[in-house]
Amino acid sequence: MNPITFHQFLETLSQESASVLNPELQPQDYVPINLSETNPQLHTFNVASSLAWEAFIQAHLNTHQAKVAYGGYLEQRNIYKRSGYFNPSSNNVERNIHLGVDFWLDAGEAIYAPLEATIHSFKNNTNYGDYGPTIILKHDMGQEVFYTLYGHLSMASIDGLTVGKTLKKGTPFATLGAAEVNGDYAPHLHFQIIRDMEGYQGDYPGVCSKKNLDKFAANCPDPNLLLKVY
């Protein structure tokens, strides 16, 4: 399949949204949030502080009377400047373009399989600013096989997990982690679609550089093609 056809394929997998959050959430419970470097509000607090981020996200939710803030696909962000993991001095190539969609809500909230799946791999990615506990699901849809990544989970989400375990669509299989385990972020889910895992296990880049954007955008299409949230 070429990328355009794969996009169409993702859209046809669910006529309605394929939810990764509580299915009882209503459309009015979601509100978009801009975390790009163009948002002047991000200069009003310490973006290196997970506590400051939690306060910022909660204020946004309160203002809009919402339960979940979402956004971020191909968003260029400054938050990654705080970590050498995204800005290695050895090659001077900054990674700051976000390849998934984020859902900001409370730690402990359940995460659900959007489609039938098996556990492909899992890992605790412990670099500062990284995913923390991460699960990758494999979706074999017959004509296409692809993967979905769930980052910033709780430690309990990967304790006792086994590769190859099957999940039915709508099965809760993980919970969101707090800042202490999720890479030092306000609680949120990083959700990403991946066509080719390129040999990665329990991990895959969720942020890329401008130099490599075309490659990663082709391999990681817009999650909303499947989720239909926005």
Rank of each mutant, 00 (worst) to 15 (best):
L51A: 12
L115Q: 04
N96E: 05
N124S: 05
V68Y: 01
P187F: 07
Y70W: 15
L153I: 02
L161M: 12
L61F: 04
L21V: 08
E11M: 15
E109A: 13
F9T: 12
I135Y: 01
S209E: 08
L176T: 11
G206P: 00
A217T: 08
W53E: 11
G132T: 00
L161C: 10
H60M: 14
I194G: 02
Q41G: 01
H60W: 15
Y128E: 12
G132M: 05
V145Y: 08
C220W: 03
G132Y: 02
V207D: 01
L25Q: 03
N224T: 13
S36K: 10
E180L: 07
P32A: 11
S90E: 08
I111L: 10
K67M: 07
F103H: 04
G202F: 04
F146C: 14
Q76S: 09
T148H: 10
N92D: 08
A179P: 01
D130S: 11
S157D: 04
Y112L: 05
V20I: 15
F122T: 02
L189K: 03
T148N: 09
I119K: 02
W104R: 02
D203A: 15
F45H: 03
L42V: 01
G160F: 01
E54S: 15
D106G: 06
A55N: 10
G160H: 03
G132K: 03
G84L: 15
I4V: 14
Y30Q: 08
